[in-house]
């Protein structure tokens, strides 16, 4: 075997190795936790299969040709240079495939945009460099807090061992009940930010001076992590988003505690006056 084919084989082996490693491990979509995330995931898998099929057909033909139609094996060049029929066929088939891919995506887009009649509305405000949350409507209305990175600086500088949730942990989690439609309104105080929780399939830019929104309904309790994904300056990498999904009763308990705490703060303030 020539050195070229050895290298080509090596290259494809590496590619195959990566891909298999990635698909079976943490290097793929996080497990979908909402209807939208599930639809997104399914459409991506379908798209990958279609790509793979086209890839095999096109490069199967090309590599067969590279192997057989080479001068070194004495292949004489043919002289054809166009065929209207073939060209119409390979314009039409991709068009049909694309229409098939666009159809389910269209339904999901329309569903994603339907933020009407939420059970709970939370405003997320991007600051350089943290998030502020205000519960505007529904159970928990009136709760308001900031949410900052809680990873110690010593871990960033390598003076301490990095924890399991390095850079993905905050002091105050956003808490929501399971199975309820949550509408998140995004805006920003200074520059653009973006609110992203991959497991829910939601991502929305937060724009200073404007209001945008998104919605999700979490399928089951748990803690789901995301990050700011719009470059917002020096500490852009340090403003994670942590959403804690709770059962309804636990959520009610959390709301009560938060209310009590803020009432206590108010009383202290009143006494102080």
């Amino acid at each position: 075997m020539s050195s070229k084919s050895v290298m080509a084989l090596l290259g494809s082996a590496i590619l195959a190795f990566y891909s298999s490693m990635a698909f079976s491990s943490k290097y793929f979509h996080p497990e979908p936790q909402s209807v939208i995330a599930q639809e997104t995931y399914d459409q991506h898998i379908t798209a990958l299969w279609i790509c793979l099929a086209i890839f095999i057909v096109v490069f199967g033909a090309m590599f067969y040709s590279i192997l057989k139609h080479r001068k070194s094996v004495g292949h004489k060049a043919a002289n054809f240079h166009h065929s209207t029929v073939v060209e119409i066929i390979w314009t039409a088939i991709p068009l049909l495939i694309l229409i098939a891919m666009a159809f389910p995506a269209t339904r999901t887009v329309v569903a994603m945009k339907d933020t009407s009649q939420p059970d709970i509305t939370i405003k997320a405000t991007g600051y350089q460099w943290m998030w502020g949350y205000d519960y505007l409507q529904g159970e928990g209305e009136g709760i308001s807090f900031f949410s900052k990175l809680s990873t110690p600086v010593a871990q960033l500088e390598g003076k301490e061992t990095k924890g399991e949730n390095y850079l993905l942990e905050v002091d105050n989690n956003v808490v929501v009940p399971v199975g309820k439609k949550i509408r998140v309104i995004t805006t920003a105080n200074d520059v653009l930010h973006a609110w992203w929780v991959p497991a829910f399939g939601v991502k929305q830019d937060a724009i200073p001076g404007f209001i945008r929104d998104l919605w999700f309904t979490a399928n089951k309790p748990g803690i789901f992590r995301g990050q700011c994904v719009e470059l917002c300056g020096k500490d852009h990498g340090y403003m994670p988003i942590v959403v804690e999904v709770m059962e309804a009763d636990k959520y009610a308990q959390w709301v009560a505690e938060k209310k009590k705490a803020s009432a206590a703060v108010m009383n202290t303030a009143a006494v102080g006056n």
Binding site: A61, S65, A78, W90, P94, L98
Partner: peptide
């Protein structure tokens, strides 16, 4: 989304044409 997906059609035509150019040629590398 639709407009973007449409670009795949002429781009695909190009890739198919390159493949067809190589097909039954007398290639050196």
């Amino acid at each position: 989304m639709y407009a973007t997906m449409l670009i795949a059609v002429p781009t695909g035509v190009k890739v198919f044409n390159w493949t067809a150019t190589m097909w039954r040629g007398s290639m050196t590398f």
